[in-house]
Nucleic acid binder design. Sequence first.
RNA 1: GGCGACGUGGCCAAGCUGGCAAGGCAAGGGUCUGCAAAACCCUCAUCACGGGUUCGAAUCCCGUCGUCGCCUCCA
Length: 465
Amino acid sequence: MSIRVYNTLTHKKEPFKTIEDKKVRLYVCGPTVYDNAHVGHAMSTLVFDIIRRYLEYRGYQVQHVMNYTDVDDKIIRRANALGKDPQQLAQTYIDKYDQHLSDLNILPATFKPRATGEMQNIIDFVQDLIEKGFAYVVDGDVYYRVRKFEPYGKLSHRNVDEMRSGARIDVDERKEDPLDFALWKAAKPGEPSWHSPWGEGRPGWHIECSAMSMAHLGDQIDIHGGGNDLVFPHHENEIAQSEALTGREFATYWMHNGMLQLSGEKMSKSVGNLITIEDFLKDHPADVLRLMVLNSGYRSPLTFNDEVIEQAHKALERLQSGLKPDLPGAEGAPAEDITALSDQCKATRSGFETCMDDDFNSAGALGNLFELVRVINQARANGATLQQLDEAQALLRELSSVLGLRLENGQTSHAADAFINLLVELRTELRAKKEWELSDRIRDQLLELGVVVEDSVKGSTWYWQ
RNA sequence: GGCGACGUGGCCAAGCUGGCAAGGCAAGGGUCUGCAAAACCCUCAUCACGGGUUCGAAUCCCGUCGUCGCCUCCA
């Protein structure tokens, strides 16, 4: 009964062992805040939220860091194009992203550092690398000496010599080797910059994560996560920086989520096939997106299209159906239904854990929840009372929330309930008098207001859609 | 071109340290019902293709085809 985790480093599922007992240090690469985030970003953050929630369910205390890259070429370029201050632009998108995370029911990270807030850590880190001979200064730029770090390529499984031929981007003559990457960039006129021993400048992207991870989680962490498009060069470079500095293994497990696919292609800014989180949430509950993520393996590409969204919608309603109250006039289900319920509860919890223990197999775990729903609904159909359903429904709620599903309709106010009850009661009287036309009209119009009325022989129930 | 992942019913997918192919959606049939909806019951796949290993393979090995990712900013 232990958790197994697929490690990009080894290409294998490995038993999960933390550095410190029952404590997990988790670092996940966050967004560069230069534009609205899209559902691909949401997928990544959902994946690691699910992982975090499950680890907590399993009794781990999770120290979770997610960074914001708030200084970078793209931010500067966009700010200039819009005639805005880069820092303000970044702040705008940080605020928006924070709101998205909350809308998506993503647990707030323990720390959410920003590159601009960590300048001293970054500068110290770079200075240390220079002193150790892993970096060199050229005209106010600082570069990492890739060939000096022996294991370079161990994460992305490439070797340095093969990469050389692939390095076809403008070779900077000032670098010792085309593979070397920037740790610090000298400021150009008008760019945001910070004082450093090498002059005014700003950090490169890769060093930020290494520095922030180390500052908040220490030299060694348990899990480093991110999208699989970050494996090379970003994470490879993080390893090079961090391990050169400390001489110790940076992260035990490297976990990478697959890309969200829109019409057969990775959703990305450069392809231009974006759906923003904002737009998605305008049309769909957050649970729908989460369900889409849960329904496929986190490492696989996620198919994203209208049909799949619709399917997730229906699947969500199916899960919610398990939480409906007993039928009107329920008088108790036969003993075999009650036995089946409690058997299923045991089977569901253990099946759920077996799946999630196996590299967070959320699709399998979901399958277990759907089986629980079926047995609950069977019992209800056979007259189970709310009390008889209680244990199973509580379990359904509990495990759904481990996956981060709310399963609620978002209706927080019950102010209207009394009025709706009244309408439904009146309608029951109309039905008794066979006034079908009027009672159907009430049902239809309530539906338009978001209230679903369900009739049965013994009466009617209603709920918010 | 190099490295890697993947290819399971109409759709999304689990299973892949080998032994009767989860689950959701859709579809068809039925129960219930004034109608509708919901719920319940039933039906619906031999796992890209070709070889091989094995008593036995969706699961292991080789090859072919196809899709996708990375190699450049990217969750």
